[in-house]
Nucleic acid binder design. Structure first.
Length: 222
DNA sequence: GCGACAG
DNA sequence: ATCTTGTCGC
């Protein structure tokens, strides 16, 4: 469907790191989400004792946010969990799910980081570049970067910094909840990334598309 | 050498 | 991520 080299997943951490550096150079931070008509949530869970990765992509219409379709992809796990290399563990299953989509969503909200990553290629950026699609990283906790806690009110935010470089936004998606770590994945700006997350968030901490994907990926819904 | 560390 | 009951708070 998209992508390129067949086996960029069967590598060791050192090779994966070089691959991340190379792909990070392709990330664009200009907002290109203008004509968005569909927004998808992407999340991965595990089954068979953590032996198999199960990814779900839940697609919604925009701006009505009506559920349109959802697909699931599975793949044997071949890469261990190493902070900073998450995409090499989960992307194979995500791409299996992508293959089951009739058409690519206009915008992808991924569970995990975008450029808020040591080499600026968290899973949201990796997927966005791979599919050449706008993507946003929605992390439930911090991987790297420094920040001052944002005010407790919904919408309050603080920049996530790595030295003097801005790599994301620490965002209070709901009043008095633990903040989310938002960062551009690909073809989205910092500001647009935050706007999209807030626009897709309803009564809960996580945006609806990700919640929907999460319920299925984690195996507690169908 | 000593912490930190997405899911 | 996943293993797990009750429990605290809105």
């Amino acid at each position: 469907m998209t992508g390129s080299a067949p086996h960029d997943w069967d590598v060791d951490a050192a090779t994966a790191g070089r691959l991340q550096q190379r792909l990070a150079a392709q990330v664009r931070l200009r907002d290109e989400t203008g004509g968005t008509a569909t927004v998808a949530g992407v999340d991965t869970g595990f089954e068979a004792d953590g032996t198999v990765a199960r990814a779900c992509i839940a697609v919604f219409s925009w701006p009505a946010l009506t559920p349109l379709t959802r697909v699931v992809g599975r793949c044997p796990v071949t890469f261990p969990y190493i902070p900073g290399y998450l995409s090499f563990r989960e992307m194979p299953a995500i791409l299996e799910a992508v293959d089951r989509l009739a058409e690519l969503p206009d915008l992808l909200l991924c569970d995990g980081q975008g450029i808020a990553h040591p080499r600026r290629l968290g899973i949201a950026s990796h997927l966005g570049v791979w599919l050449d699609r706008p993507s946003i990283g929605v992390g439930k906790s911090r991987l790297c970067g420094r920040f001052t806690p944002p005010a407790p009110d919904k919408g309050a935010s603080a920049p996530l910094l790595d030295g003097d470089e801005r790599i994301g936004t620490v965002l209070r998606s709901r009043t008095r909840v633990r903040p989310l770590f938002i960062s551009p994945g690909h073809r989205v700006s910092h500001a647009a990334a935050v706007d999209w997350v807030l626009a897709c968030t309803g009564r809960y901490r996580l945006p609806e598309p990700i919640r929907a994907a999460d319920r299925i990926a984690s195996g507690r819904a169908r």
